[in-house]
Design a protein around this nucleic acid. Sequence first.
DNA 1: AGAATCATGCAAGCCTGCTTGCAGTTCACC
DNA 2: GGTGAACTGCAAGCAGGCTTGCATGATTCT
Lengths: 291, 291
Amino acid sequence: MQACLQFTTGKIEMSLIDKISGQAPSLTPSERRLVETVIDRPKAAALGTALELARAVGVHEATASRLAKKLGFDGYASFRDALREEFIATHETATRFEKTITTSTPETILGKLALDEAQALGRIEEFIDADQIAEVAGLLMGARRIFVYGYGNAEVLSLMMVKRFRRFGKDVQHLVPDPRGLAEQLLGIGAGDVVLSFAFRRPPRGYAALMEVAKETGAKTIMISGKSGALLAPGPDHLLAAPRSGDPDAFQTLIVPMTVCNAIVIAAGLTAKKETLKKLDRLGQLIERFE
Amino acid sequence: MQACLQFTTGKIEMSLIDKISGQAPSLTPSERRLVETVIDRPKAAALGTALELARAVGVHEATASRLAKKLGFDGYASFRDALREEFIATHETATRFEKTITTSTPETILGKLALDEAQALGRIEEFIDADQIAEVAGLLMGARRIFVYGYGNAEVLSLMMVKRFRRFGKDVQHLVPDPRGLAEQLLGIGAGDVVLSFAFRRPPRGYAALMEVAKETGAKTIMISGKSGALLAPGPDHLLAAPRSGDPDAFQTLIVPMTVCNAIVIAAGLTAKKETLKKLDRLGQLIERFE
DNA sequence: AGAATCATGCAAGCCTGCTTGCAGTTCACC
DNA sequence: GGTGAACTGCAAGCAGGCTTGCATGATTCT
């Protein structure tokens, strides 16, 4: 376990399962069942204890211990460490981007990406439920003004939400990042206003001040973030945090938070359907007149 | 750890994030660093011991132990078990999500959306193959200058690609939509330049003219679009078209084209790995100097 | 400036999990 | 049917990791 929190040199032997499988003929029935379980669910085995593995298989922990030695490891601990290395050990490589690059081959980038995204999307509901979406959507649609705050990668989402809610006819301001401009924009903030902000990896500059101002003036705050949103202090009134797709140590995309945004937009559209349609209609007329 | 070797019932509480979020304001500096490390590298934390985590952060293991209790766990072991549970969930979800797709009828907006997106993502490879991605990525990375063109909803993606390729150190211009400004920006376009454009539902204003100018001057053109991309005339040199998720007559999202963009960015990183890493490194330095 | 509170390292103690000698059982071979 | 070897469970012992009272240094409030 020494290497887990430190920089590993990057070498991973992929032979462990092969080695085990190769030894299969000389294994006893109990050992065979153990090995089968390990091969079937290596991650569970890598995380559990010898006792748990043994119990899952229905043998004694001593048998698991002996198996590890038989396979050439110093003991069960070494065996499990090898499992961890092979299946889940993290390489803290130079940059997140490099991580993605080194584990990708051009042939599989798109496919792997699509798969990762799909899986991440599948988990969204474990972190954000329908009530939260509806509540946030209602809040936004009922807001006197909406202030959107998000920079860096998150600016993409900020822009999208600004566009969407302007289409709903809302008064939406995209907050600028520079302190003075921000202060000016926030001069008139007050009860009935809503601040919608984004944070990935770290809160945007001025986040704490923004939240404080909002709280003091009675404006509501909404935060859409990855898992790191839990760390934010002071916390927002409404936190929508769902882990993003991809390896946390590598390239993370905006697909998950964008889907959360889309859900909010759809919910917002539903909460004020009639008005929305009227506004959209009006937008069509306006566009035509400008074309 | 009871659950590790068994199939979890599928319900995972978002308790971990909640717990952290609830305590975020009252965390001490050391605890904060610990939590940041855990969020940043959950795998390492899930696998390691309290001592290893503490050492990685530079604090005493006792602090890690106390943090776990402060967050509402019985002790460090419980805390790590929660991490492991979450970790297993993220990485052994494949079957669960398939199951979700086939069995569940989502009643919530978010759930339905996630499902739609996932299914659309699953079809991407039927429309766009790896060679196209690699080719486009190579083209962009080899370009003298990149002109990005996309408005309306597509502006979100334009912005993203402008940001990403600027990070790669490329000379990227976001073309303005007004005719005169566009003409001015395109004055110097020529061979070696690449035009990256987006079109959903209908081509952007001035699309035809832009394509013609590009062809005359020898610049290459890339189009990322939904299915309607096939209708574009004149056609681009490279067309990446994949159907978007959602009802064609209703709300369509940018998830699919964004995933295509992400794949291009990753592939672009691959085609010029060394330079890319150097540039990213430089970006990190620059950001630090500006903070 | 002094006192109190808090954060954090230290180190002893406890607990969990791994190991290993021993014994009972099974199976194969004689 | 008997003998022996191998397999496996049992339980005591051991090691590593987690916990917690205590002390020290920092910070804040009076």
